[in-house]
Design a protein around this nucleic acid. Structure first.
Lengths: 224, 224
DNA sequence: ACCCCTTGTGATTTTATTATAACACAAGAT
DNA sequence: ATCTTGTGTTATAATAAAATCACAAGGGGT
């Protein structure tokens, strides 16, 4: 779920510094000392952001990016460079860079620019997630994953699970669940909740090994 | 068609300098010496970008932006400031800034950052192509291609597809679609959306083999 | 004015979901 | 041990939702 960031920098200690900070911030990082092998990785792996030194031996970083764009690869790029003459800045932006930072740079500023850029480009995939143990609910896409494997839930099951997660450690009565998940107007039987809970259990824990949902006899159900 | 940019800067000569260059680049510019009146303009006019000094007398620029975001106004912001301590940079980004440039600044770099930021934010509204899998929408000519073969879509179908692509992985309710694709004033029935979606499906995937649009029962439709 | 295209709505069919009933089982209570 | 009560399970019926079809009311364009 975390963003994956590729870094191209020929100075090894700077590369290590950046990778260290990226991982500290929780990103996946892949370092390169040159643009060699980079193309194939960008095409095959899901890279969310590219940090590119422009003063590479051999190919100019910006030429490389221009070639990427021509191939239809639109990974956002932050340039990292010692150059700061106007013409260089311009060239960097023109060839499809999304941001630009000059050496010597403040590592914290770089991290913040990364964060800001990812926020813009990653739209809504990471936000709005509810988690419980190894279950992840994406509220926007309404996708449910258990340890990376997707699970199909109906609207009712999804809403029910949301309510349970949002009230962890609280035992929810059938009456409460009928009110909050089903809606207030119509009247249903308490049994209805049982069956819905069981169907949900069956989907999220078919082997009955995880015991996500605990039933509290005479009261209701809870997640703890 | 040209972007409209609002500039807030209390030093009159700097404000004039920026406005001069903005207009030279072909943007519409609106200058402000303080955040007074700015809110109403942002709400009423279509402002594509806000350039904001943070060292304003009275309100802090970043506080003002935070307030904007709280109101749901998401105009992109470039901060312009003499401050450069880490904590200030951080505060600027956190409160919803999209870029940050410190005084004394290179006016050309500012122009380039403006261009880059507009490119990122305006892609989906004005120029360029939208892509989804093998579908390409040309937003200017409103042409649609699926793997090089052209497809004829009506205005409604085109707008609907745009909205779906711009909200990939998010399940859009019929209500949301009626609001955003049809427009707010008139009232239509939910099933109107069904029919429009089906007509769109029929055009972009007559054999029903691609399954571009997924219907999420009880919720709405999504593209994933 | 005419025709054609678009599109909103009604009617109908098809599908998926879910409420309920009926039964089975387990844990306490008597 | 047996009865009672609550819950799990399964099957079936009811229902809600969506797809599909058909038609008619606008809206442009010629």
């Amino acid at each position: 779920m975390n963003a994956t960031i590729a870094v191209v920098e020929d100075e090894e200690d700077i590369l290590e510094l950046i990778e260290y900070h990226l991982e500290k911030e929780g990103y996946e990082s892949i370092g390169f000392l040159s643009t060699k092998n980079l193309s194939s990785v960008l095409e095959e792996e899901k890279i969310d952001l590219l940090i590119m030194d422009r003063n590479l031996p051999g190919t100019e970083g910006s030429e490389f990016v221009a070639a990427l764009r021509a191939k239809g690869i639109n990974t956002p790029v932050i340039y990292l460079t010692a150059k700061n003459k106007e013409s260089d800045i311009e060239e960097g932006f023109v060839s499809g860079g999304d941001d630009y930072i000059t050496k010597p740079f403040n590592i914290k500023e770089l991290m913040l620019r990364i964060k800001a850029l990812l926020k813009r480009t990653q739209t809504n995939t990471t936000e709005g997630c509810l988690r419980y143990r190894d279950i992840t609910l994406n509220l926007g896409s309404r996708e449910v994953h258990i340890e990376e494997t997707p699970i199909d839930l109906t609207k009712l099951e999804f809403d029910l699970l949301c309510t349970l997660i949002n009230n962890q450690n609280i035992v929810l009565s059938r009456e409460y669940l009928l009110d909050h998940v089903w809606g207030t107007d119509e009247i249903f039987q308490d049994r209805t909740v049982n069956v819905a809970i069981n169907r949900l259990k069956e989907k999220i824990d078919p082997d009955k090994s995880k015991e996500y949902i605990k039933t509290v006899r005479g009261v209701g159900y809870t997640l703890c």
